[in-house]
């Protein structure tokens, strides 16, 4: 059963097609990564889901009900925008209480736990908070609800690595409680660890959806190698792209699904050091478009 489903939702602003026939669904208890570069249409899609924007065409379902027919579907979700602004004259505590109250959530122990975990000083006025602290207030408020669907638009941009980890832990905890999570990001590696499935959006269009493992055919891994032999000989292999040399090591970009072949070819060259770098979004796009132009 899917908690959320989008069917061909389209949204245009003047000449810009911010979202073009976007379709995907999120299963119950699933973490769903929504990846795309800046301006791809992630926020626009999310704003349609939360009802701030009305789609030009297409339909959105929450719990298999079209949202246009269910005026109170929003009590099934919580949302944290990418750029959090709060009421300057309210303290963090007051904001968190406000959202708890409006969502009818009463567990204050859980609140104290989250405040502790995110190291928030809740007594300060929101205007004195940094971007990261404002984000923490919104994240804490979002976790304090009984909603089944948690939507985060680029949630970790203002957080330091330690807080990012706390956030990941909370996301996994929510998943274990059976909740579904929509996580948008412009950085693939950030979502990759958490997401059960991902969708990749670019220029308003979903270009791939699926489990990351299934997307291997479109990802490339960067290997950083030092070897006794001459690595130049690898250059001519069909699955090797971009080949660059810096002072003591060589960076080689290899199709993800061809890792065994690559390692086989590398072995005779007596590698002394081998590191891998996670696939980057840009590389995915590059490969995606190369494939497309090969086909046509």
């Amino acid at each position: 059963m899917s908690i959320l489903e989008l069917k061909n939702t389209t949204k245009t602003f003047g000449d810009t097609i911010a979202a073009h026939e976007v379709s995907f669904h999120i299963e119950k208890g699933e973490i769903f990564g929504f990846i795309g570069p800046n301006g791809a249409g992630k926020s626009t899609t999310i704003r349609m889901i939360i009802g701030a924007l009305t789609p030009d065409s297409g339909e959105i379902f929450v719990d298999d009900q079209p949202i246009s027919k269910d005026p109170h579907y929003k009590n099934k979700l919580t949302y944290v925008p990418g750029d959090v602004n709060l009421w300057g004259n309210l303290t963090g505590d007051e904001v968190i209480n406000f959202f708890m109250k409006t969502r009818g959530y009463t567990n204050t122990d859980r609140k104290d736990e989250l405040i502790e975990k995110f190291r928030l000083d809740p007594k300060k006025k929101c205007k004195a908070y940094s971007k990261g602290n404002r984000q923490k207030v919104a994240l804490i408020s979002a976790f304090l609800s009984n909603a089944d669907l948690l939507i985060f638009d680029e949630p970790t941009t203002g957080l330091d690595p330690l807080m990012e980890r706390s956030f990941h832990e909370e996301v996994i905890r929510a998943k274990n409680e059976g909740k579904s999570i929509l996580l948008s990001s412009h950085i693939l590696s950030e979502v990759e660890k958490l997401a059960d499935r991902i969708a990749i959006i670019r220029d308003g269009q979903i270009i791939e959806t699926g489990q990351l493992a299934d997307l291997r055919h479109i990802t490339r891994i960067e290997y950083v190698v030092q070897a006794k032999g001459d690595l130049e000989t690898l250059k001519s292999l069909p699955f090797v792209h971009e080949f660059t040399q810096d002072h003591d090591s060589t960076h080689i970009l290899v199709d993800n699904d061809k890792a065994p072949e690559f390692l086989e070819a590398l072995h005779p060259l007596q590698p002394m050091q081998l590191e891998t770098r996670p696939p980057r979004l840009e590389d995915i796009f590059m490969r995606y478009y190369e494939d497309r132009s090969d086909q046509s």
């Binding site: 704003r47 929003k74 979700l77 959090v84 009421w87």
Partner: peptide
């Protein structure tokens, strides 16, 4: 303008 409205909307107000 400060984008707080969408947070309020998402909280079913």
């Amino acid at each position: 303008k400060s984008e707080r409205l969408e947070m309020l909307v998402s909280a079913d107000i």
